[in-house]
Design a protein around this nucleic acid. Structure first.
Lengths: 117, 117
DNA sequence: CAGCATCCTTGGGGATACTG
DNA sequence: CAGTATCCCCAAGGATGCTG
């Protein structure tokens, strides 16, 4: 979290905004989580775990909570026994998807060119 | 570096390509470095240091070398005394800039909405 | 000027066990 | 089921000093 906006001055061409974005997205499993929620379908915690077997339960919880705090993911708790929790992308979260697709497009081209050499 | 492409199987909807991209871009100072080279003008090492006073010399070298290895940045050494080295974005590096601008646009909207609440 | 070499610290993150 | 709570380790990265 860029604590002081005066940083803007010392790094004039790296906008405060861009810095914030990369800070939010730089969580180790954040891109993966967002990508798995990209279809707009809410998913339960256990479902997410199964989709991402390499992510420990601790990290999944931690990163989901961070995304919730930042307003990219919403967490809906159903008061039942046993408890059920659903995660989904918020409006702002969904708006990241086209960007992710652009990144993916870039990467496809990148890998093609790498293989040539 | 995703060492095995079989990972693609266990994380079916997170493409190998997207994973590669985020891996390259997730270096702590990578976005900042790319942003400072976005104008296409080659910049000398000392120049970069002045532009990014918060980045230590060790990290700047390290991250620039990683970007060079990945083919996003080119490093040109002029055999002089004293030595001069210029860094600039490669073709693939430059193609990231529009994406960065989209991210920036997203972040602007994101911060606006956050302030409302 | 543009680094490389070392030492040292910190916290990110894994493994494991427990709970409402 | 959906998490907390602890312990612990290692490597990312900062500080400092030296060099072709």
């Amino acid at each position: 979290m860029p604590e002081d906006r005066t940083h803007k001055v010392s790094c004039s061409s790296f906008t405060y905004e861009l810095e914030v974005a990369f800070e939010i997205l730089s969580g180790k499993w954040v891109p993966l989580i967002i990508w798995h929620l990209a279809d707009g379908e809410p998913k339960r915690f256990g479902e997410m775990r199964r989709l991402m077997p390499k992510v420990t339960q601790k990290m999944l919880t931690q990163q989901l909570r961070a995304l919730e705090k930042h307003g990219l993911v919403s967490r809906k708790v159903y008061q039942e026994v046993p408890p059920a929790v659903e995660y989904s992308l918020t409006e702002m979260g969904l708006k990241l998807i086209p960007i992710f697709e652009n990144v993916n497009g870039w990467a496809v081209e990148y890998l093609e060119k790498r293989e040539e050499s």
